Amino acid sequence: MDTNKLIKTRGLVIFQNRYKESSKIVNILTRDRGKINVFVSGAMLPTRGLMLVTEKFVESDFTLRLNKNSYYIEKAKIIDSNLSLGQDPKRVIIGDLICEIVDLTMLENQVDSTVYDLVIKTFKYLQDFSLDPDLINLAFMIKYISHIGFRPRLELCSSCETRNFSNIYFSNESGGIVCDNCLNNFDDCVKLNKSTYEALIKLLFSKYEDFYSFDFDEKTMKDLHRLIYGYLTYNIEIDGLKSQIRYDKFFGI
């Protein structure tokens, strides 16, 4: 890796942690360098001008110094502070959840511009107060887990590949929907009603731009959350996410 040189990159802060009195350690998801860990000396000092650019959710154009495999911020220009999320506690926690998922699953220096673009677009629509934030949250989880290699099979039985269904079940173990004939092959099958199944397909394959016309009832939303969150945590092999625990505590599912 090149050392002792200046690098320009665009990135979003997905993790921050205070270090001693005035410094921070932050993880930044960048478009062309992947996730990088950055030590920011004096981040909390007004004279350094790095207080806001090192806050979680803030997207900036960074000039970084790379020295002995470590990154340091030389300067930064804010592109989008995403400050409007602060008007709604639910949107803040969902933003935390998105960042936590990415931070836990992306390796350092793993470049994936599609993930970066998805995260940035998700934050854009999360700030649109005419859209249900829970809908954006569910869509991000299913789109993200699909992109990193765990796209659920929804068009045919994930076990026998039939397209003929009397009833539709979903299994984390099988990686998608399951038919009646294969039901006993898996221990975790959950029966899906038609509205939940159709909503799941919409979330996976529709663009955020299409979400303004979506209107899922409360039961469908709860069913989708249990299914998608369960599928995500199963595949990334995590028992539970801290941000989701906070969400359940304040808003419940």
Score class of each variant (00 low, 15 high):
I120G: 01
C189Q: 01
S130R: 11
Q110N: 11
R153W: 00
L107W: 08
K202S: 14
D132I: 06
P152D: 07
V119R: 11
D128A: 08
E209W: 00
I120R: 13
S146E: 09
Y116R: 10
D132R: 10
Y208W: 11
L135M: 12
K202T: 03
D134A: 01
E108M: 00
I148V: 15
H147C: 04
V115L: 12
G175A: 04
V115R: 03
D188R: 09
N109A: 09
L200T: 00
N172A: 00
I177K: 01
E161H: 12
R151E: 15
N184I: 03
N184D: 11
R163N: 13
V111H: 03
D180E: 15
G176F: 04
K143A: 08
I142E: 02
S206F: 14
V119Q: 06
D180I: 09
N185E: 15
G149A: 06
V111S: 05
Y125R: 11
K202Q: 13
D187Y: 12
H147W: 11
E173N: 15
K191I: 13
R163P: 00
L192H: 12
C160R: 03
L104K: 13
P133S: 03
L126P: 08
I136C: 04
K191W: 02
N109G: 02
D117T: 09
T105S: 13
K124Q: 07
V115I: 15
D132Q: 09
L138K: 06
P133E: 02
N193W: 01
T122Y: 11
Y125P: 12
K121W: 01
L107N: 14
N164P: 04
V190T: 12
R153Q: 14
N164Y: 14
K124H: 11
L192R: 10
K121Y: 02
N167L: 07
I120Q: 12
N181K: 13
Y125L: 10
D134V: 11
C160Y: 06
C179S: 07
D134H: 10
M106Q: 13
I177H: 01
S171G: 04
M141H: 14
Y125N: 09
E173S: 15
D180S: 15
H147S: 06
A139D: 05
L138G: 02
H147F: 05
L135Y: 02
V178G: 06
N137R: 06
M106N: 11
C160G: 07
F129W: 07
S171D: 04
F186C: 05
S130C: 00
C182M: 04
E155N: 10
T122Q: 13
Q110M: 05
I142G: 02
L135C: 02
E108R: 01
S174M: 12
E155F: 02
D187A: 12
L156E: 13
N164D: 15
E108V: 00
I145E: 07
E108L: 08
C182Y: 10
T196N: 05
Q127W: 00
Y169F: 15
S113F: 03
N137C: 04
C157G: 02
K121H: 01
L200S: 00
K202C: 11
S130A: 06
G176E: 04
D134I: 10
L135D: 02
C189L: 01
C189S: 12
K121G: 00
L154Y: 11
G176L: 09
S146T: 13
N185Q: 13
D117G: 02
L126D: 04
E209A: 10
Q110E: 15
A199L: 09
Q127G: 14
C182G: 08
K121L: 09
D187S: 15
F205T: 09
C160E: 06
